[in-house]
Every structure is written in C-alpha cells, then in structure tokens.
Design a protein around this nucleic acid. Structure first.
Length: 325
DNA sequence: CCTTGTTTATGGCCGC
DNA sequence: GCGGCCATAAACAAGG
C-alpha cells in the first residue's frame, strides 16, 4: 500500500535483502554471532522501516536464517542464558555479496552435502566459530576496550575463491565497518548508485554504543556517490571475510591485536589456531600501516578459559561449501 | 503462551 | 521462457 507522503525516507524499505541485513547484523557483532533477538534489534535500530510489521518481516527473516546455508546456528552454551541459539555466517560465504553489492546476491551459498567422506557438518563450523568467539572475547576482556573486529569466519576456504583481493564496497565488512575507518569521509567513493535515500551502508556503525549516532542522519546524506574512485583502502582493512581489522571502536590507531588473516588463503592456508595466528606472510596486498604484525597476541592467550583443545577440527576439512549459481 | 526454528508454498522480479 | 533470488505467508514443532 502506497503511502506516499510526508514521511521521510526513513520508512522506506531499505534495498537490502533479509540475508544482507542479517549478515550485516552478524558481522557487526564482535563475536560474529548473534541471537535472533539481537538480529532483530540491530535491524530495527538501523532501519526504521523495520520497526513496523515486525511479525511479518521477522517471520521472513527467520525463514531466511533457516533456509539459507550461509547462516549457521551455534548452540548456546549452558552458561549462557537466553533463548535460542546464536546465528553466524558460514565461514565460506564471504563472497556471497562481494561480487555484486548488497542489494542482491548473485550466487546462492550452498553447503555441499555429504559428498566426500566428511560431510560438512555445520556443527564443525559452529564449533569453530564458538571457539573463536570465546578466544576473542577473552582476549578482549583482558586487553581492555576495543574489539578486534575479526570475523570468526576468517577463512575463505577453498570452496570459494575470491577472484581478487579486492573487496567490493558493498561487502559486508565494508558496509558495516567502514565508518570508523574512513579517512575524512571519503570512504564511500566507491559506492554505487544506490538510492540516496537509503542509509549508506558504510555508515552503519558497528557498535551498539554508537547505534543511535551516525545512523539516521544517513538518510539524507547525499553526496555520496563519487563512484569513480576505487575504494581500495577499505578493502585493505577488511580484506576478506574476516580479516582482522582494526579495533572497532574509535581508536583507530593502536596496536592491533595482531590477527593477520589472509585475504584469500590458499586452501591449505587455514591456520590451525586462528585466534593466535602464527605470523602469516603478508598476504594482504595493502596492509594498512597501522597493522602491526607483531604476532604477539594480545597478551592474553592464557586467559581463555576454554581449552583450545576442545575440538579444533580444521574448519577447512569440514567445511565444504560452494556457491552455486 | 511466546519465541525460536523448520519447512512448504506461492508469486514477483531479474538476468540469461 | 526459464531459472535463480527474494519476499511473504503459514503450518507446525520444540523449548523456555
């Protein structure tokens, strides 16, 4: 039903699919996983449009979560209160959007099932992710304030090779994380012609804390599309699905929790212990200057309460996925 | 009972 | 036109 009118753009439907929205939400969380309710919240916080008819879109969203292989469910640990599970992005679904924009996927992410010997059990991914989160959190806690924004899904497992290190501006990472990363706001040069009325993705903030801020004003902001400039820098920091990125909050320049992750590691390049990566050869084409490769983890390797031994099944082996088109 | 998840079905839009 | 992606609705199960 058309309701033209007086409402600002804010109640227009964002051009993103539920998959995109969900991915954004998940990516925006420090742990790269969120319970359903948080996903709802994220979306509602940012997109006024979704503050209404919640029943409807939430149903759709749940449908998407279940239906799409790119989302994996991570069981809640007993010590974690709350209902439902956590949802995360499948580690290999990184290129889902990259090719195109966030507006529409070009390929559907699909997990190959029981093909070879090892059936790709989501459980493996889940386990892995959870562990990741754990490690990260503990490191976080010890290190203090900022979150090493590093996606649990830091691997592009062989399945989906990324054609190039270049990350599309609409890639999730860029979208949700760019804000604090843009130098003087020229960050969105590479933005594509997107309805100006919509929030620029790159302005989505990642932090709950900054939720209210930077967001709504986005609506009117025009001036974005300068579409000629390649946005290489963003891709440097958020190279691939999961690259370490800079500490999320403000603080743009601090010793990074060195978590070098290859943009697109060779299939074999999957680190055994992602949280505390061994010095990885600089795979990042443009490694940001601020990234200090001191592989010294944040100094709190020990803080992790959970024993790493806890099933470190190589994610690579377990996750066979493919993007089918 | 409500939330969370899963599943099936239908129809629109878009690219090839 | 067909196939893929997406939105939406709805039935249903399970769990807190």
């Amino acid at each position: 039903m058309p309701r033209p009118g007086r409402n600002t753009y804010s109640d227009q439907k964002p051009p993103y699919s539920y998959i995109s929205l969900t991915a954004m939400a998940i990516q925006s969380s420090p742990e790269k996983m969120l319970p359903l309710s948080e996903i709802y919240k994220f979306i509602m916080d940012r997109f006024p449009y979704y503050r209404e008819n919640t029943q409807r879109w939430q149903n759709s969203l749940r449908h998407n979560l279940s239906f799409n292989d790119c989302f994996i469910k991570i069981p809640r640990r007993p010590d974690q209160p709350g209902k439902g599970s956590f949802w995360a992005l499948h580690p290999s679904c990184g290129d889902m959007f990259e090719n195109g924009s966030f507006l529409r996927r070009r390929k559907r992410f699909k997990v190959l099932k029981s093909d070879h010997l090892a059936p790709s059990k989501p459980a493996d991914a889940a386990q892995y992710l959870q562990q990741q989160a754990k490690l990260r959190l503990s490191a976080l806690a010890a290190s203090g304030t900022h979150l090493p924004q590093m996606p649990a899904a830091a691997y592009n497992l062989g399945g989906v090779a990324q054609p190039s290190g270049f990350k599309h501006p609409f890639a999730i990472e860029n979208i949700i994380a760019r804000e604090y990363k843009m130098p003087g706001g020229l960050a969105f040069s590479a933005m594509q012609p997107v309805p100006a009325a919509y929030p620029l993705p790159n302005q989505l903030t990642t932090m709950g804390s900054s939720l209210g801020t930077g967001w709504p004003h986005v609506y009117g902001s025009a001036g974005m599309i300068d579409s000629a400039t390649p946005i290489s820098m963003a891709s440097a920091d958020y190279s691939a699905y999961g690259v370490p990125l800079k500490p999320l909050c403000h603080a743009a320049g601090q010793t990074l929790p060195a978590i070098p992750v290859p943009i697109k590691p060779t299939p074999a390049a999957v680190p055994a212990l992602p949280a505390l990566p061994a010095p990885i050869p600089t795979l990042l084409s443009n490694s940001p200057p601020s990234l200090s490769p001191t592989s010294s983890q944040t100094a709190t390797s020990q803080s992790s309460p959970a024993t790493p031994s806890e099933t470190l099944t190589s994610p690579a082996s377990a996750l066979h996925s493919v993007a089918v088109h």
